[in-house]
Design a protein around this nucleic acid. Structure first.
Length: 487
RNA sequence: GGCGCGUUCGUCUAGCGGCCUAGGACGCUGCCCUCUCAAGGCAGAGAUCAGGGGUUCAAAUCCCCUACGCGCCA
């Protein structure tokens, strides 16, 4: 049996961290088993669903490298998205026919029935029960209506919803790949609505129909659905469908222990992209939120992650999102890139700075000197700007390093010495400058630091000689001069 | 309110009855390296395994209760 998993987001907003983690686990599981990964859009919430949300979700998934075998195409045309795969459509709003058909079947077999209670009536009953401290459940009023009663309700113009007839006794066991067997008492459950008065199917119903028709073998989803699973299981059974395997993933929390939300800062995947995170770092970090392997390995190559991932390593308890570790992981991934690749990957940020026009090779040379310090791609313009534009002198650096006795003299005397260096490269420059120190009887710090600030405007930066080499003789001499005038 | 799930260093986690004086990773502290900032190397602080009862020769690991957190239904 080939594995088929699915990620089924509601397009009511961007793809957030929690959703991305779920998608990643579904994807990893499918890829690990050489199975199929399906993307289904659950757009039955007509009010809140938007095309823009669909776009954002697709874009986020693509950015993270979570490719889907079946589902909508990445880009939208005037008429909507094209779809690929033999189990479509992949938008629930286009699947009404399937829901209707199975709804009819359940109704015909008496496994579901029409309920004529109005929302107002139900709300009143709920309130009543709540006052009397009784369990608030549907009372089954429409469970066994006669035809005559039904006609009366119809005549009143009531739009019936459809309820599923749940067993009243015994218990339902959910066999979960992550949590093991979880048991639920049936008499505590109620006949739940599977189609609203408008005819729109509810989540629990549409989900089951789609998962079955799409031949999903493993339903991997968030923890919040564990409690809905008994209801779903009964729908599967009522329709004679084979049960898929279930795996419920723990939730992701913010630093304060509550469910991760906007209050905690960035939660949208695309925000992380825009902050300068690398998708492979994000993916690696997300994989570690709620999953681990016995070796406690932290960094994984893409293929390695697929090879080692399994539901056994999934955590039952919720995980707190830790931005610091994500940051660390990103810097690890940045360091692994070749300077050229790093330049390419940072392109949007370089453009946004003022380095868009600089040649790739020139950028790569400069990048090479700073790469090991880079945490986010967005830092690059700030770190590299002085290589290609006039230095901006940091007042603190000026006070501390240049506006001190002797610094001006160092710059003045050093200029001709550097001008005389023929091969303007790190090694000869270092030799010359060290010799200069000896000649003048100065400590290296008394010379190195002023040069650094004069040339870059800052106290921190790349190795001095490499930096001078990349800048080139002309710029170096010009800046020594410029800095001297500022003192 | 009912039901369900969860609880190991600040955080992510290893652990599935003896190997645990509880291991790793991020972060933190100190030292080394060094022209700065990083990186790297070394060292260190940090968890009475939520609390309380059992079971057992032996429990972080099994059972029960309590507390707290989260989720679902309403």
């Amino acid at each position: 049996m080939t594995v088929r998993t699915r990620f089924a987001p509601s397009p009511t907003g961007y793809l957030h961290i929690g959703g991305a983690r779920t998608a990643l686990f579904c994807w990893l599981f499918a890829r690990h088993h050489k199975g199929t990964f399906v993307l289904r859009i659950e757009d039955t919430d007509e009010v809140r669903s938007t095309h823009e949300s669909v776009d954002a979700i697709l874009e986020s998934m693509a950015w993270l490298g979570l490719d889907w075998d079946e589902g909508p195409s990445l880009t939208r045309h005037d008429e909507g998205w094209e779809e690929k795969g033999g189990h479509g459509p992949y938008f629930q709003m286009k699947r009404g026919e399937h829901y209707r058909k199975h709804l009819e079947q359940l109704l015909a077999e008496g496994k579901a029935y029409r309920c004529y209670c109005t929302p107002e009536e139900l709300a009143a009953k709920r309130e009543q029960a709540s006052k009397e401290k009784k369990p608030v459940r549907y009372d089954g009023r429409c469970r066994d209506l006669t035809d005559a009663q039904r006609r009366v309700f119809e005549a009143e113009g009531r739009k019936p919803s459809v309820r599923f007839r749940m067993p009243q006794e015994g218990s339902t066991v959910v066999s979960d790949e992550v949590r093991g067997e979880v048991s639920f008492e049936n008499n505590l459950r109620q006949d739940f609505v599977i189609a609203k008065g408008s005819g729109v199917p509810t989540y629990n119903f549409a989900n089951v129909i789609d998962d079955h028709l799409m031949e999903i073998t493993h339903v991997v989803r968030g923890d919040e659905h564990l409690n809905n699973t008994p209801e779903q299981i009964h729908i599967y059974q009522a329709l004679g469908f084979a049960l898929p395997k279930f795996a419920h993933l723990s939730m992701i929390m913010g630093p304060d222990g509550t469910k991760l939300s906007k209050r905690h800062g960035a939660t949208s995947v695309l925000e992380y992209r825009d902050q300068g995170f690398l998708p492979e770092a994000m993916r690696n970090y997300l994989a570690l939120l709620g999953w681990s392997n016995p070796e406690s390995q932290q960094l994984f190559e893409a293929a390695e992650l697929v090879a080692k991932f399994g539901l056994e390593g999934c955590q039952k308890n919720p995980a707190t999102f830790d931005n610091q570790k994500l940051l660390w992981m990103n810097s690890e991934y940045v360091r692994k890139l070749s300077p050229e690749t790093l330049v390419d990957r940072a392109r949007p940020f370089l453009e946004k700075g003022r380095l868009g026009g600089v040649h790739r090779d020139a950028l790569a040379k400069a990048v090479k000197l700073e790469q090991e310090k880079v945490t986010l791609l967005s830092e690059l313009p700030g770190r590299l700007d002085f290589f290609f534009h006039d230095a901006v002198y940091d007042p603190k650096a000026m006070d501390k390093v240049l506006k001190v006795p002797g610094a001006g003299k160092v710059l003045e005397e050093l200029a001709p010495a550097l001008a005389a260096v023929e091969l303007f490269a790190a090694k000869p420059l270092e030799d010359r400058i060290r010799r200069f120190c000896e000649e003048k009887g100065l400590k290296v710090g008394q010379v190195f630091h002023p040069i650094r600030v004069a040339v870059s405007g800052r106290t921190m930066g790349p190795g001095l000689f490499e930096m001078l080499e990349v800048l080139g003789k002309e710029k170096v001499l010009a800046r020594l001069e410029a800095a001297r005038k500022l003192i």
